[in-house]
Amino acid sequence: MSADLQDKYKKIYRYCYLRVKNRETAEDITQETFLRFIEHPEYKGLDKELQLLYTIAGNLCLDHFRSQSPDELPEDIPDRNADGDKLVDDISLHDALNKLPAEDRELILLRYINNEPLSVISAIYGISRFALSRKLKRILSALRNELGKEGTV
């Protein structure tokens, strides 16, 4: 149970981090998400309703942005040059990912990093699994085009 929870925690944390770009804020939102989740009327157990977790996390991220003043910048913007061992490929991929629209980045993270099933993601975004599958294909194709070499992603 604990390992499973840890996995869920990390998934929600990654999802939040992708949006707020700040480790501490992402972790605060993740914890708030879980606390709200167990108090939620639809809550049935910590092992269920992953989709609900994402929804709560998404709403909390939106609340966070609303509460921020426009000129407030994230404190720890990741510095990719700090890691000298990083491969050129990774940097290119990082740039290519950053060029994607925010929602497309989220979809890639949910599907390929968090390994969420299509059914969960499609429910979060309110689109059909068929449309989601096509969208993912299109995003991957855009990434490939951006990288200029087939087969990297």
Binding site: L5, Y9, L18, A26, E27, Q31, K86, L87
Partner: peptide, 29 residues
Amino acid sequence: KEREALERAFDIPEPEKCNEFIEELLKKE
């Protein structure tokens, strides 16, 4: 391999308070 490349490209740091929070959460539940 491709997934790992994507993970590195996203460059998301590991959470720090995960274990402590989960313990508290389980108690709360």
